[in-house]
Nucleic acid binder design. Structure first.
Lengths: 134, 134
DNA sequence: GTTCCAGTTTACGTTAACGTAATCTATGCT
DNA sequence: AGCATAGATTACGTTAACGTAAACTGGAAC
């Protein structure tokens, strides 16, 4: 293990790396998604915070709300401990699994349509480029 | 061709069929996604309107905004006519294709993680059920 | 010391996509 | 005629996820 394992990040470093505003990052904290340390009043982000930010953005990309993302974090953290939580956890996961599978099917459909449309367009354009002048 | 080809629908029929409120349907019209006829003041929806409603809902499921959906409708309608539009059309399609592909990858990642988590949970629960009593 | 600069707090503004009344209209039924 | 029912219009309310602006802080550079 090298010495770089405990690297920390400033808010603007993270903002740059993930292409979000500092405002957004602070907002995520206010919503309980990040919990950076403080050095005086400045926020210091650990690797864990960085990972959570990544996961947050990925969650957003697949259509989760910040609240849902937070719930998943909490459940994930609690999953080692509590027993009755486990059933609830699996429940939520299954539901989300369902939705995502549906979403993938929708996307595949649209992708197929897009492919066809693009092919048609290119076909038309070829015909035109060899067609009659004005 | 049978006589049923020109069937029309009332707003609540569509609302029921697709499980949306009439308010939403009227809103989609106000956003230019639907263009039902009128019989007096009542809206009469054609098969075309019904299809557009379907497409609208599908678009929403994959994360398109109503505005984007409308633009796609317009471009699709104009695609037969205009020539310089075609390039723009293909552009938009390609961009969306990109995003959707990325989205699918994200989803696949999450689905894999979900699968692993579920397996782990079930594993834990089995162990507990056969474990030491209170 | 002052001038940057990144960072902080506070607070009001904004957009999308409807929800939720409240009020009005048309029509078929009894 | 009277009533229920579906639909229409108008308008204000709501939520999520930040944007934007203003005013303050604390250290670094000159």
């Amino acid at each position: 293990m090298t010495a770089a394992a405990d690297r920390t990040f400033s808010i603007s470093e993270l903002a740059q790396e993930f292409d979000v505003t500092t405002r957004a990052i602070r907002f995520y904290e206010s919503e309980g998604l990040l919990t950076p340390e403080r050095q005086g009043q400045r926020r210091i982000y650990s690797r864990r915070d960085r990972v959570r930010l990544m996961l947050t953005l990925r969650g957003k990309r697949i259509g989760l709300s910040l609240l849902e993302i937070r719930e998943l974090f909490e459940l994930y953290d609690a999953a080692n401990n509590d027993e009755p939580q486990l059933t609830k956890f699996v429940d939520i996961l299954s539901r989300r699994e369902q939705q995502l599978t549906q979403q993938m099917q929708d996307i595949q459909l649209v992708l197929r349509e897009i492919g066809q449309l693009k092919a048609q367009c290119e076909h038309w354009m070829e015909k035109r480029s060899g067609g009659l002048p004005e």
